[in-house]
C-alpha cells in the first residue's frame, strides 16, 4: 500500500491505531484467540460449504419458504412496533422517574432477557391462553384468542424482544442530560411536549439501535413462539420453526432457509456497524 520510497519509514499505515509500532501478540493469548475465532466462524463456513447452491433458487422460490419468510418479517416488525410503543415510555419511566420498587420493576423487565424462551411461552399460555388468567376474559368478552394465531406469534416475539429495546433506550436516556427537558419546560413546554420535541430526537440513535436489536431477536425467536403459537405453516410457522422442521425431512431446504436468515443477520450487522464503530471511538 505504501510507496516503495516510503517502505522503510514509519508511516501511519504500519503503526497501530494508538501510535505504537505493531508487535507480535504473546502465544498464550494468540492461540486461544485463534481457536475461538475458528470456533465462531467454522459453523457459518460449513453452512456456506454445504449449501445446495445449484438447487438454491428453486428452494428459495418455493411457496413454503416465502410464506415463512414473509410471516417472520411481518411478525418481527409488528413485535418491534409494539415494543417501541410500549417499551420507550417504559424506559422513560425507569430512567426519569423515581417510585418505590423501581429497582424491582427494572429487574422484572429484564427477566425475559435471561428467561429460557420456552418458559416464557408457557408463562404466556398461562396468562393469555384460552383458559389463562387474562386469556379467559379476552375469549369470553371480546372473542379474542391469541394462542396458535399470527397475533400470538407477535405476542410471543414481543415478550422476548421488548426487554432488549427497554434496556437500550433506558441506557441512552440515562446518558442524556435531563436538563434539556428542564430547559424545555422553562420555555413553556409541558413534560410530554419536552419529551416529544427534545428528548425523543436526542435519544433517537439509541431507540434505533434498540429497535434493531429487538427486531433481530424477534426474527430469531423460536422457543416462546412454538410454545405459545404453535407451528402452523402460513399462520404461525416463522423461519426458525421452518428451519427446524425442514431439518427433519429435507436438510437441503433447512440449509437454504438458514442462509436466508444468515443474510438477514449480516444485513442487520452492516446496518449497525456505523453506530458501533462510532460508539467505540
Amino acid at each position: 500500500m505504501t510507496e516503495p520510497a516510503q517502505a522503510h519509514t514509519v508511516t501511519p499505515e504500519n503503526r497501530s491505531r494508538h501510535g505504537r509500532p505493531r508487535r507480535g501478540a504473546p502465544l498464550p493469548l494468540m492461540l486461544p484467540a485463534l481457536v475461538g475465532l475458528a470456533f465462531l466462524l467454522l459453523p457459518l463456513l460449513a453452512l456456506l460449504i454445504r449449501a445446495p447452491w445449484r438447487s438454491l433458487p428453486e428452494q428459495l422460490t418455493s411457496a413454503e419458504v416465502w410464506q415463512a419468510l414473509q410471516l417472520s418479517l411481518v411478525s418481527a416488525t409488528a413485535a418491534t412496533a409494539v415494543s417501541l410503543v410500549l417499551g420507550v415510555p417504559l424506559a422513560w419511566l425507569l430512567a426519569r422517574t423515581d417510585f418505590p420498587g423501581r429497582g424491582l420493576v427494572r429487574a422484572l423487565v429484564t427477566l425475559p432477557l435471561v428467561l429460557p424462551p420456552v418458559v416464557g411461552g408457557v408463562a404466556l399460555l398461562l396468562a393469555l391462553g384460552r383458559n389463562g388468567v387474562v386469556g379467559q376474559w379476552l375469549d369470553a368478552w371480546f372473542g379474542i384468542t391469541l394462542p396458535f394465531t399470527t397475533a400470538g406469534v407477535v405476542v410471543a416475539e414481543t415478550f422476548v424482544a421488548m426487554p432488549f429495546l427497554v434496556i437500550s433506550v433506558e441506557g441512552t436516556l440515562r446518558a442524556a442530560d435531563p436538563r434539556y427537558e428542564e430547559a424545555a419546560t422553562t420555555l413553556g413546554a409541558s413534560r410530554f411536549t419536552a419529551f416529544r420535541r427534545v428528548t425523543l430526537p436526542l435519544i433517537a440513535p439509541g431507540i434505533a439501535a434498540g429497535a434493531v436489536l429487538a427486531w433481530a431477536r424477534a426474527l430469531g425467536e423460536f422457543g416462546a413462539t412454538i410454545t405459545f403459537a404453535g407451528n402452523f405453516p402460513g399462520r404461525t410457522q416463522t423461519m426458525p420453526l421452518a428451519v427446524y422442521l425442514a431439518l427433519q425431512n429435507d436438510p437441503a431446504a433447512a440449509i437454504a432457509l438458514s442462509l436466508v436468515l444468515l443474510a438477514v443477520s449480516i444485513a442487520v450487522l452492516a446496518g449497525l456497524r456505523d453506530r458501533w464503530t462510532t460508539a467505540s471511538t
Binding site: 430547559a183 424545555a184 413546554a189 427534545v198
Partner: peptide, 20 residues
C-alpha cells in the same frame, strides 16, 4: 405554578441549546 406556566426565562450556565 409549574415551570412551563411561569413567565420566566432562563439562560442556563452551559446554555443547554437543543443540539438537534
Amino acid at each position: 405554578t409549574p415551570p412551563e406556566a411561569r413567565p420566566v426565562g432562563v439562560v442556563f450556565q452551559d446554555y443547554l441549546l437543543f443540539p438537534h
